[in-house]
Write a protein that binds this DNA or RNA. Structure first.
Lengths: 196, 196
DNA sequence: CCTTGTCCCGACCGATCGTTCGGTTACTCT
DNA sequence: AGAGTAACCGAACGATCGGTCGGGACAAGG
């Protein structure tokens, strides 16, 4: 009775379809007609499951943001030397980006046209600031180079990590999330140059 | 007679206004009504200068792509050790990104919904491949670490550089294009860790 | 059998989309 | 002054937008 198997849509399964289309065409470039074609149900049927287009967006970016913020509550992100906590957060960010790829992709592309989008942008900024403070602490410890501004370095590192959503595809053989996380950590902390 | 001063719009001046609005609201999220408000002329007047919305997009991404491809033709990008050519290209990319910021921003956000957008994506891929070959050559020379896949490293470095369009603003005091270029080169090649 | 509720549909709503058109200004050149 | 034209405008086009509405199909429970 509780979780009887249904072959119909739930708000969650519909969301996974919608997010894919949003990422393909862009949120503004996606019409409810596009969604209905992709989901295989009529346009009006969508409104039986969700309140509208913007609710789909809100659910998606919420899921992405929740996944990111959970990182900061984990033990390894809270205790220990700042530079090690930073490395842990970077690695976990890559893991969340890859495991929640379509949702994070959508989050990183919101422009701020609606109230929902502006709320998403604000929460993103909060997360960025939390990580920036971590890097600042690592710099104060002397574990991170001091010749690059903390704010600037944070943005560049975020840029590298967030670029995952532009090219990472989970089905690519020989390129697991773990391998990407290792590469990101190596490049972020060690750089491109050969260490002889 | 040749370049008599006019206080009216040309396709170029109109483009600079349009690109700003495109970047604010997203291309699909921008209506011709939005453009007319921002430009201070009526919607129909826009069509006196350009063929339509898509031509504005094509002009903008063309300008960005031309600026990027010109880098590869410059002397320092063609002669010398691969790792040094790579460093030059990275530095010049940052300069082009900052000097042509709104146009490159628009370029990096096209999704591929129209023929124009797909053409832009294809040219972008060409450019990426050219730089990837440079990094590959540097790896063959032994000047770049071999424990990270060339393709992966290229994408991550591009991600860091391209993220400029998400936060760099030319009016920010104390943060010139030169300073950003230096920081990018330092981080890309040397990494975040303190070199003692 | 009949009711109840879930799930879905076609038809339609007012609004807005990108674009077109006929016509009016306002400046340039002779 | 008159002709020519670049720049602009309001009104309207068909299409599509996000969303609504009344009702049909179908399974579960009585």
């Amino acid at each position: 009775m509780t979780t009887a198997k249904r072959d119909t849509y739930t708000p969650e399964t519909l969301l996974s379809v919608a997010v894919q289309v949003f990422n393909d065409r862009g949120y503004d470039g996606t019409s409810m007609e596009h969604l209905s074609k992709a989901a295989g149900i009529s346009k009006s049927s969508i409104y039986h499951h969700v309140a509208g287009k913007e609710e789909l967006l809100r659910r998606a970016v919420s899921r992405a943001l929740d996944g990111l913020f959970e990182i900061l509550d984990e033990e390894h992100a809270c205790v220990g030397r700042a530079v090690e906590r930073l490395e842990y957060v970077v690695r976990r960010m890559v893991e969340v980006l890859t495991s929640e790829l379509p949702y994070v992709t959508l989050l990183l592309r919101v422009r701020g046209n609606t109230a929902t989008e502006r709320w998403a942008l604000e929460r993103r900024r909060d997360f960025d600031h939390r990580v920036a403070e971590l890097l600042k602490a690592a710099a104060a410890d002397g574990d991170v180079r001091g010749d690059v501004e903390v704010r600037l370095a944070t943005r560049l590192v975020f840029g590298m990590i967030n670029s995952l959503v532009e090219w990472y595809r989970p089905d690519a053989r020989g390129m697991g999330a773990r391998e990407v996380a290792d590469a990101v950590v190596v490049l972020v902390f060690g750089g491109l140059r050969q260490e002889s």
